[in-house]
């Protein structure tokens, strides 16, 4: 008999980059693996702590307050850049939500200051003087081997993100603002690196996407179905809240 499959998740700055209930995303991944009899291993890496480029199948970074995001930006570049680059190069999933998304790009301009990013996504973000982009949001995505096409969530960001040539948008905005409130796109994808402004949190509102991440991170593993009645109701309610 072969070893049961095991998902290894590394949360980046779980104590600082967690403002939009990012724990909900990690809970979804954990339970949906465990209910299928799969192993689940969660590690965290805080300020000053190195990460293992081969140690996880999914690297996750959530959002933080400005001050915390600034601390993490400097630390990412100093301590985690090389490992994350090589993890992405070997096909590990790197998922950034909200502030985490911004830091996966080249940089984030906040007034006179520029926070460095790690450039895994060819995107740049600029803090706008205008109103924060806040509200329920739904986007249409087209992901390989995925049967579902809609992600619903909540966005709340002051930064406007523009995509460069090498990044594709994660999806097309159906309702809400998206990357910058003007070009109709949301999030970014570049190989196995994914960034999005959808929190709320993202995965409890889109259990199919949690499964897509698990499957993709484990080389396209086929997953047993689960009783997702409540998950589907929550997804439907999030779509309705966004106006779909």
């Amino acid at each position: 008999m072969s070893e049961p499959e095991r998902l290894r998740v590394c949360a980046l700055y779980p104590d600082l980059m967690n403002i939009y209930a990012d724990r909900g995303n990690l809970l979804m991944l954990r339970h949906r693996c465990q209910w299928r009899g799969m192993g689940f291993e969660l590690t965290g890496a805080g300020i000053g702590e190195p990460i293992d480029a081969d140690g996880a199948d999914i690297y996750y970074m959530g959002g933080g307050q400005d001050r915390d995001q600034e601390l993490c930006a400097a630390d990412l570049v100093a301590h985690k850049l090389e490992a994350l680059r090589s993890a992405a190069a070997r096909g590990a999933i790197v998922l950034g939500v909200c502030g985490g998304y911004q830091l996966l790009g080249h940089d984030y301009q906040l007034g006179g200051r520029v926070l460095p990013g790690i450039g895994l996504l060819d995107v740049r973000t600029v803090r706008s003087e205008g109103a924060r982009l806040t509200g329920n949001v739904a986007i249409e995505v087209d992901l390989p081997h995925a049967h579902e096409r809609v992600l619903a969530g909540f966005e709340n960001h002051g930064g406007r993100t523009q995509l460069g040539e090498r990044a594709s948008p994660l999806g097309r905005v159906l309702r809400g603002h998206g990357n910058n409130g003007s070009d109709g796109y949301e999030g970014a994808r570049q190989g196995t690196v994914i960034g999005t402004y959808l929190h709320g949190p993202l995965l409890p509102k889109n259990s199919w996407f949690a499964d897509w991440l698990i499957s993709s991170a484990l080389g396209g593993l086929a997953l047993d179905p689960l009783d997702d009645e409540l998950e589907e109701m929550a997804h439907a309610a999030a779509r309705v809240a966004a106006g779909l």
């Binding site: 509102k205 309610a237 809240a241």
Partner: peptide
């Protein structure tokens, strides 16, 4: 409530 299902999901998880 309006988000009853997600609250139920929170209890489930």
């Amino acid at each position: 409530g309006r988000r009853a299902a997600e609250l139920a999901l929170r209890f489930k998880y």
